[in-house]
Design a protein around this nucleic acid. Structure first.
Lengths: 248, 248
DNA sequence: CGCCAACTTGATGGCTGTCAAGTCAGGTGG
DNA sequence: CCACCTGACTTGACAGCCATCAAGTTGGCG
C-alpha cells in the first residue's frame, strides 16, 4: 500500500508511539487485507516502540511474561542457559520477526533475548493481542501462523543439529541468512554478520574454532569471501550442493 | 422389529463420537473452569475419535492441514525427512498431547506423525477451534499456551542436541519420559519404550549403536535395568547427576 | 522351528573438540 | 599520530568421542 504524504508523527528519544499503519514491515507482522479501522485497532494495541542498545537484554529468562515484541529494526539473538553454565543460542531474529512467544506457556520467559546491534522493537501487550484476536479473525489466524512458523523453524534447527556435519550446518546457516536478507530487500550475496563466531557456533552446536575453520575452507574453495564479519557469497549453487550431499 | 425407544448413539468400528466431557485426559487438553455449556461446545467441535494402528501415519509431510489432533491413548513419533534420505525424529508424543501444529503456518504439514503403538486420537478441526477460541476466552489462552509449550520444548531439544554428550542426552531423555509417565499416573521407574534404538538415536542425534552402548553403560553402573524395550530406573538421582556434570 | 528385525558388542577411523599460539581490527589515551 | 590494549578471529597440533563397519545375539512371530 502506498502512502501519500502524511502528517508528521511525534517522536521522543526513548519511546515512540508505534504506528503499524505507517510501518513498512507491516506485511511481515500483520495479515493482509485489514480494514482501515482494524489497522487503527492494531495501532492502539501496539503500545509503544522501544530502543534496545547493542548487548542489552530485551528480556531475560525468569522474567514475567507480559508482551511479545516485533522487531522494527536491528538484530537479536535468543539463548537458554543451563545451571552448569552451558548455553545454547536458539535463534537469531531480524526486522519483522517476533520475539517472546516462549513466555506464553508459563507466564515466564524461558530464554534471554539480547540485541546484537542497536535495535528498535514494538511492544505488543499479550492480553490485548488476545482481545483483539477475538475480534479480528485475520489477526487471530495470522498470530497462529506466526507461532506455527516458529515451531517449524525449530524443527529445521533440530534437523541441522541432529544430522548435519559442521560444513553442512554452516552452509545451511549462510543460505538461511542470505534468504532472509533478500526477502527484506538487502543483498543476497553480501552482508554483515551481527554475531560472533562463538554465537554462530553455539547456534550450530559447534565450537568457534570449527566455525572459523569452515569459513576458511569455504573461502579456499572459492565459495565465499570472508573478512571477519563481512561475508560475500561467491557461489550460492556450490553452497547449496554441500547440503544435498550424502555424508556416508 | 422395533428398537427400544431411547435414541441409540451410532458407533462404528473406526470412528467414535468424541466426548471431552467424559474424558479423563480433559485436564491435559482443556483449560480449567469451563462451564457445562462451554464443555458442550467443545464436545461438538471435537468431531470424532479415530483409531490409528501401530506404524500407520496420522498425517504426512506435504498433506494439507485441516485439523490438530489430541492423543487420547497411544504413542506417536513425529519426524522430518531431507531429500537425501536423512531423517530426524522431532518428538515423541503421548496421551493428552497435541499433534499437528506444524501445519498451521503453511496450511500443509511439514512433518510425519506415526503411531508407535495402536492409538486413538481426537480430531479437532482447526477452523472450528479458531471459531470457538473467539468465543471462549479460556480456550483461546489455553491453545496459545499449548503452542508456546511446544516452542519451549523444542528449545530444550536444541539445547540437548547442541551442547550435550551422548550419555547426557540419553539421561535427559529417560528423565523426560519418566516424568511424563509419572504425570499420567504410570510408574516413574518402570516403563516400556515404544520406539526403537534407531528412533531414539535419531531424536537424540546419535547412532543406534551409541544409544545401545549408553544403555549398557548405565546398566553396568547400576543406574538402570534394560531388557530390550523394558526399562527400570534404579537410581534416578544418579541419572540426574549425569546431567549437571561439567563436560570439560 | 526358523526367520527376521531389533539389539548388543567389538575394532577402527574420522570429525570435531581442546589446547595453544599468533594475527587482526577497532578503540583509547598519551 | 602512534603505541597500546583488548576482544575477536585464525591456524596448528593433538586427542577423544562417536560414527562406521562388522559379527554375533536375542526375541517375536508366522
Amino acid at each position: 500500500m502506498h502512502k501519500p504524504n502524511h502528517p508528521v508523527i511525534p517522536l521522543t528519544l526513548t519511546t515512540i508511539k508505534a504506528a503499524c499503519s505507517q510501518c513498512n514491515l507491516r506485511e511481515l507482522c500483520l495479515p493482509y487485507g485489514l480494514s482501515e479501522q482494524e489497522i487503527e485497532q492494531v495501532d492502539s494495541m501496539v503500545g509503544v516502540r522501544r530502543r534496545v542498545k547493542r548487548s542489552q537484554h530485551l528480556y531475560r529468562a525468569g522474567e514475567g511474561f507480559e508482551a511479545i515484541y516485533a522487531i522494527r529494526s536491528g538484530f537479536f539473538k535468543t539463548d537458554v542457559l543451563l545451571e552448569d553454565g552451558r548455553n545454547q543460542v536458539t535463534g537469531f531474529q531480524m526486522a519483522g520477526e517476533i520475539l517472546g512467544m516462549d513466555g506464553i506457556s508459563t507466564e515466564t520467559h524461558t530464554c534471554n533475548a539480547v540485541a546484537l546491534e542497536d535495535s528498535e522493537i514494538c511492544i505488543i501487550p499479550f492480553p490485548q493481542l488476545e482481545n483483539l484476536s477475538r475480534e479480528i479473525h485475520a489477526l487471530q489466524h495470522h498470530f497462529h501462523k506466526v507461532m506455527s512458523r516458529e515451531i517449524v523453524r525449530d524443527h529445521g534447527v533440530m534437523m541441522l543439529l541432529g544430522t548435519m556435519r559442521a560444513e553442512e550446518r554452516l552452509a545451511a546457516f549462510l543460505l538461511n541468512l542470505s534468504q532472509r536478507f533478500t526477502s527484506r530487500g538487502y543483498s543476497a550475496a553480501e552482508f554483515h554478520l551481527r554475531m560472533t563466531r562463538d554465537e554462530i557456533g553455539s547456534y550450530l552446536g559447534l565450537k568457534l574454532e570449527t566455525v572459523s575453520r569452515a569459513f576458511s575452507r569455504f573461502q579456499d574453495e572459492g565459495l565465499i569471501n570472508v573478512q571477519q564479519k563481512h561475508i560475500r557469497i561467491l557461489d550460492i549453487a556450490g553452497i547449496k550442493k554441500l547440503l544435498s550431499r550424502q555424508p556416508s
